[in-house]
Design a protein around this nucleic acid. Sequence first.
DNA 1: CTGTTAGCGCGTTCAC
DNA 2: GTGAACGCGCTAACAG
Lengths: 339, 339
Amino acid sequence: MSSTRPTPPGATIYSVAERAGVSIATVSRVIQRPEVVSGATRQRVLDAIDELHYVPLGAARSLAVRHHEAHGLVLPELAGPYFAELLVGFEERAAELGQSVVLLLADTKRDVDRAVRQLSTRVDGLAVFASTVSAETVSRVRQGRKPVVTVAGGVAAAGLGTESISAENASSARELTEHVLAHGRRRVLFVGDPDLSSDTAARHDGFVAAHRARRRRPAPPVRIAFRENDGTEFAERLLAGEFTADALVCANDELALSVMTHLQDAGRDVPRDVAVVGWDDVMTARYVRPGLTTVRQPVADLGRLAAERLHHLVDGDDPADEPWVLPTRLVLRGSCGCG
Amino acid sequence: MSSTRPTPPGATIYSVAERAGVSIATVSRVIQRPEVVSGATRQRVLDAIDELHYVPLGAARSLAVRHHEAHGLVLPELAGPYFAELLVGFEERAAELGQSVVLLLADTKRDVDRAVRQLSTRVDGLAVFASTVSAETVSRVRQGRKPVVTVAGGVAAAGLGTESISAENASSARELTEHVLAHGRRRVLFVGDPDLSSDTAARHDGFVAAHRARRRRPAPPVRIAFRENDGTEFAERLLAGEFTADALVCANDELALSVMTHLQDAGRDVPRDVAVVGWDDVMTARYVRPGLTTVRQPVADLGRLAAERLHHLVDGDDPADEPWVLPTRLVLRGSCGCG
DNA sequence: CTGTTAGCGCGTTCAC
DNA sequence: GTGAACGCGCTAACAG
């Protein structure tokens, strides 16, 4: 790939054994199960390790035990707090289980599938976020006997021997929308593209359900992407009169915040003129005025569960048929019209 | 560590060779340098690989080539955008260089040094953030012939064969402080503990230097930690009259934002009653009103450079004696008294 | 409690 | 253009 010359030869289990005057088996034991070695020889070995600055070669161990003791995690990006929290939860639980985590960020790569195949070469299992990886590659990995868990992939991701883990979206979306309607809003817009992610799709489903329950016809979703500038652009169109709305249910907080701020800067009053709500409960949501009403997901728990399940799958568990769905919680602040 | 049973035997280079009717050497060639193999046999091998769902074992390759082709990255945590950006830059460059990145988060671990030693077992080199890892452990890793680069570790981290990478802090701090003083502020407080991180120490140095340049005596730093609630607490003490100040230079944006918001909620006018500035230019900084004046660091570049240098060190470069220092930039918004 | 030895799967000379 | 054979460093029986 890159380097020409090999690593300069460091100490090995052999040099340590020689120096301590024992066999390599004993050195190995001192490292793996110190208690089975007599105190005296153990100390001699430890001294030798110290003097030679011995660092065991993980690859050699992995080869011998036929385990990488590492989990792969594929995330689309790391913007905003969502993915960071997911990663933290994953890493935390993985570490508790004695597994390293090898991280792969999809958005900066030319060829994600190649990178994932390469990754699968050095881990015991893979956690992939939603649709960052092609179904074909996932199934290749699966056929290569590596467990895969999908995070926030929706039902579509299940099957193929892949386990699915996600947060509850539809019913919280319904609850949130009902809350907005209960504030007396008549013209509620869903801002975000259901086709862009299964999370968004589920949220839109809940949005529609809430309207149906009140025998109201939901407006068609405003299909825009997730980022700040997408929100700004939408706000412009709204101000220009392209849409009429007295409430906006945005697919996530970044979107909601950029829309809300932009409307306020243009002289609109939130929530009086228009209510704005979002998803994720990012830090900014509690700093803006009014505070942003949103839905908090147990993101770190998603990560933890992914690591946990992956570990069990590597250990030989059969994949669960049913997806794992974690509960979410409404966070009411001022932007929806609440006092 | 955990798992009892080994991975079920998947396809190996041997089974592929057998199936394709060639030797393992040929299979290896097809994977490493396809062009040296004749078209016909190459295709037979590729077919066999496909049919058997062959996934090479990274550990075996690593053992043979004496390279992990992986970099370790040790970060204290992943809260806020700072570390995420650093990680993104690091991962991006590492991937370009064909290296995997193994991530270790220090704050969730019981025994960080143990975890780091364990990590050093499976990577070719280590990038560690500031003082997440004890000097002793770093030097052990170094003596084990693994390159180490320190990010945001200040000058103290240099030496020991370790390369140091950080952002310029002192002179931007001086510039920022001078800017605040130029707005006519008389009683400026530095909020943050210089002993907590070398970044903060350097910022405080700049703060002091700006005062000295005007022949003013800097107030002693308010020694509090970095998090939101630390800021809130400080704001309470300020409101209670424990401190007097017409400007606050906060060690980072999280601190600045929580202080500013809390003061505003208590009826204070920012910047009229008190100016507030910070560091990092987090997303929230441009959403609050007034916008937060802050210093932008090339955080992703820090990460990229760390990955780059690490790679060269692994390749045999001699460690640079001088630390790498990347430039920063003032971002003026309203909270300092501008506009 | 300790030593001997046979792999683990792959890269790589060196012949052919 | 291809194959045979050795070595990478470590773990895990098995013997003693």
